[in-house]
């Protein structure tokens, strides 16, 4: 209980500020927390809304898993091959500061407003931190650990998958966690830019129809999704990294 106390307090303070803002500004576009939470059950029991949430999660999962597979391989390649590092590092540094959602219009021209363009932008949005941390993880693997494996008779490919990959895992997980949050953000933005379905679309439709209670309820759902995904992620990470010193400390930088 005492472990959760700070989170509960923070939540209460947030709700209190929201309520105060609602009372003092009196805007129709700013309903109070009670009204927003009251709109939640209706939204969650609405088949269309559930379909939207399902669509969002599917695209996010597709984009994120692609980014994880690609980012880890690409990053470890850079981390273990000085040649790959020299060639790819400038490319990564150039792509890094571009907000990936800004590419959405181009992707829509090429791929339409369906799933493909959204999955691709989620992939782009979440892959860079995964590449970066896998790269750093790969290059910081101790030389003598790799030598110890080589002396046992492991070839290069075995060393990459059975030594470098697990040794880099604590660092890779930092990238995966940042990537997860970025995937959520890019997912919502992609649905706001290219509206067909999804939770972002639901949010903006509610705004268009001036259903502000429902709009805030959608935001609560997005926040809850992010929180739940992060909790699941942390449980998985702790399970994978029982052996690691770093298992209890992880910092997330969302850029």
């Amino acid at each position: 209980m005492s472990r959760h106390l700070p989170s509960i307090c923070a939540g209460l303070v947030l709700l209190l500020m929201w309520q105060l803002a609602h009372l003092s500004f009196g805007l129709s576009g700013l309903p109070g927390p009670m009204a927003a939470f009251a709109a939640l059950p209706e939204l969650i029991s609405d088949a269309d809304a559930l379909y939207d949430i399902g669509q969002s999660l599917q695209r996010m999962a597709a984009g994120y898993l692609l980014a994880a597979a690609f980012g880890i391989s690409f990053g470890l390649l850079m981390g273990t091959s000085p040649l790959a590092e020299r060639l790819l590092n400038p490319l990564i540094m150039m792509i890094y500061p571009i907000p990936k959602a800004a590419l959405m219009p181009i992707l829509m021209i090429w791929l339409g407003i369906g799933d493909m363009s959204k999955i691709l932008v989620i992939f782009l949005g979440s892959s860079l931190p995964i590449i970066y941390h896998s790269w750093q993880g790969g290059r910081s693997v101790s030389q003598i650990v790799v030598w110890s494996a080589a002396a046992m008779g492991m070839n290069r490919a075995q060393r990459l998958f059975r030594i470098v990959l697990p040794a880099a895992l604590p660092e890779i997980f930092i990238g995966l966690r940042t990537g997860l949050i970025l995937a959520l953000i890019t997912m919502v933005v992609s649905e706001i830019v290219a509206r067909s379905n999804g939770i972002g679309n639901l949010l903006f439709n509610s705004m268009d129809m001036a259903l502000y209670d429902r709009m805030f309820a959608a935001i609560i759902i997005i926040a809850a999704m992010g929180y739940a995904l992060d909790l699941i992620f942390e449980a998985i990470r702790r399970r994978f990294l029982r052996w690691s010193d770093q298992q209890d400390q992880i910092q997330v930088a969302v850029g």
Binding site: I144, V145, W147, S148, A151, G153, A167, W243
Partner: peptide, 28 residues
């Protein structure tokens, strides 16, 4: 190149941190 006829032992141990003690020893 390296080979199992020559076994290294390093100052910084170089154990496989993600494997248990028994798995480390059994790995080779």
């Amino acid at each position: 190149g390296p080979g199992p006829d020559r076994g290294p032992v390093f100052q910084e141990f170089a154990l496989f941190a993600w494997k248990t003690v028994l798995q480390n020893i059994a790995y080779g």
